[in-house]
């Protein structure tokens, strides 16, 4: 079973009286345990597609199935709970909760999912260890570098062991050296945790790591390519 399937999905934004088609007729399967990259020029619809997959936006047409569930018509609370259980997010601007320490940021989704304190502690310790931030866990986000913040964000996205992690240009705000380290980390954790990653990125370094690259232009899929690095993926 594919963690994500889209069938004839379309999304149109309305700007005043003008309809802006952001996505049209998207049919797509994301493979389990794969490192999938959405590639395309600015404005092509990558973020829109990720939002639909992440169940934080709803399509105008078509069906979206995530982790075996039709999500396009789920009520808001059910969808929130669904996201808490099945989907992790990594953002371009890290989006850590500023008043929570690195450790608490990672712990937050676990608390939200109602995981018991002891279990939470073990999981957070392991994740902080995996992103090599155990010695910075008491720091607030403002006291961390960009790369460190994104590592916290990665640990947070993985905390509840979701089926799917979505990342919208996770390296765009990082220098290329840090970006490369972040990609390597994500790649490693994706394999260790056997989770499906979907990215949007302009970054050639990200493309280089992909199992699969989906090309988008003007809201349509123009091609799907197996990535150069297919060793770890199981398409």
């Amino acid at each position: 079973m594919h963690p994500v399937s889209l069938r004839q999905v379309g999304k149109t934004y309305r700007l005043g009286s003008v309809d802006v088609p952001a996505l049209s007729d998207i049919t797509l399967d994301i493979h389990q345990g794969a490192f999938t990259v959405l590639a395309g020029p600015s404005g092509s619809g990558k973020t829109t597609l990720l939002n639909l997959i992440g169940c934080i936006d709803t399509p105008d047409q078509g069906e979206i199935t995530v982790a075996g569930q039709q999500v396009q018509s789920m009520p808001d609370d059910a969808l929130s709970d669904f996201r808490a259980r099945h989907i992790g997010f990594i953002f371009q601007n890290f989006n850590l909760i500023p008043v929570l320490s690195a450790r608490e940021n990672v712990e937050y989704p676990l608390a939200l999912a109602g995981v018991a304190a002891g279990e939470r502690r073990r999981r957070v310790d392991a994740l902080l260890d995996a992103v090599e931030l155990s010695d910075r866990q008491r720091n607030l986000p403002a006291q961390l570098s960009g790369g460190q913040r994104q590592r916290v964000a990665i640990a947070r996205a993985l905390a509840t062991a979701p089926r799917l992690v979505l990342a919208d240009e996770p390296t765009a705000n990082l220098d290329s050296h840090t970006g490369a380290a972040i990609i390597a980390l994500m790649r490693r954790l994706q394999r260790e945790e056997d989770v499906s990653f979907v990215f949007s990125s302009h970054d050639p370094q990200v493309h280089a790591e992909a199992d699969e690259i989906i090309f988008i232009r003007d809201g349509r899929i123009t091609g799907i390519e197996a990535g150069r690095n297919t060793a770890g993926g199981r398409p």
Partner: peptide, 16 residues
């Protein structure tokens, strides 16, 4: 606002 969006994306309900 961004923080609210982030929390909601992470699965916090409206009531939360």
């Amino acid at each position: 606002t961004t923080e609210i969006g982030t929390l909601r994306a992470m699965g916090l309900r409206r009531a939360g």
